[in-house]
Amino acid sequence: MKLMKINALAGLLLTVTCAAALAEEVKIGMITTLSGPAGYLGQDVRDGFMLAIAEEGGMLGGVKVEVLVEDDGLKPENGRAIAERFLERDEVEIMTGVIFSNISPVVAPLTLRAGRFYITPNSAPSQFAGKNCHENYFAVAWQNDSLHESAGLNASAQGYGNAFVLAPNYQAGKDAIAGFKRYFEGEIVGEVYTQLGQTDYAAEIARIRAADPEMVFQFLPGGMGINFAKQYDQAGMNEEVPMVLAAPSSDINILRAVGESMVGVSSSSHWNHDLDNDANRAFLAGFEAEYGRSPTVYASQGYDTAKLIASALMKTGGKVTADMDGFRAALKAADFDSVRGAFAFNTNNHPIQNWYARVVVERDGEFVNETTGVIAENHADAYATECALN
């Protein structure tokens, strides 16, 4: 595992007039997935996060920060070892970055028991949203189920009477199918759980064909989604059974890799490139200028996570564990301009936000998601009422 210690002070002016900048440097630990077919998810979270720091000349909220980044390799045992090292040796005050929900149930409890803040830019499994919610746990992207609840709403709005659903056999996959089924009004004619990291979907595609559904919902992010979509098209299934997806199964990298056969595929997301707000326009321009590529949804979430942290550090003058109540209240206020537009935390520290319908189109030789409307306004997850926080 390669450790990248990114000192975010590079290029900082020697004379700093902002009082917050006089605070002690804040250490942030980022455990994320940087290698393998899913590596681009973590790379984009990291790059979006670091872009926000670069915009402040090496600070967040006017406070000097140091970000320690390490690859978990999609292995829980790696996540545990890195988290213990970050917490005990490096004394990070904030933990972030986790992509997959086989890692977060290991890293989050370690962080919370150590009295630090866990702020996730992606993975948000159901067990941390309800009865086991925690005052120092904040989910910036979504609660896992709600991401796929939007797909269920979208499929129902399109009038589908039944669906075949599949997802990897781990917590996020279970949350995905639970979320889709919660709001899909039709019948489920097939339900399959695949292996996490699976590459061959011939057996699953055969089962879909045999079930003869009206549509398919699949949650297969990263390389899994690329492989499935290619094989689905090669089997001639795109013309027979359309897919209705959530954002991770239709991100811009998947569209590029799969190509023309994705045109017309329907999906839902809390963010898209064409959302019309100042923060999103600045983010897109900055990301493309800094990295020479278009950001995925994961980059937008990394960026928003850093902006949230910046807003809290600004209010506390750089204090994190030295002012737990103050920093927590500042996070809860979510006083920043999200690239998604309106954003607020629910009582369980998970987002209340809009969800949008999208369709894949070809524009100027590129395949992109085009926003077609709002699926749900100010949507909250299903577990908030079980959380004792307020």
Rank of each mutant, 00 (worst) to 15 (best):
L13G: 15
C18K: 15
A20Q: 10
E24I: 07
G39Y: 05
G39K: 08
G39D: 03
Q43P: 09
A52G: 11
A52C: 07
L68M: 14
G73E: 03
E88C: 10
E88D: 11
D90C: 08
E91W: 05
I94S: 06
V98Q: 03
L112M: 09
I119E: 01
K131N: 02
N136T: 07
Q143N: 13
E149C: 05
Q158F: 02
G161E: 00
A167G: 07
N169P: 10
Q171V: 00
D175W: 01
A176K: 05
F180K: 01
Y183W: 05
G186E: 00
V189I: 10
Y193K: 07
G197R: 06
I205W: 03
F219V: 01
M237W: 02
D251S: 04
S269Y: 03
N280R: 07
A282G: 13
E288K: 15
Y291E: 14
P295L: 01
T296I: 08
T296W: 00
Q301P: 03
A310V: 12
D325R: 15
A333K: 15
D335G: 13
R340W: 12
A342V: 05
A342G: 08
F345G: 01
A357V: 03
V359S: 10
R363Q: 14
V368L: 15
N369S: 10
G373P: 12
A376H: 04
H379G: 02
A382Q: 01
A384T: 06
E386M: 09
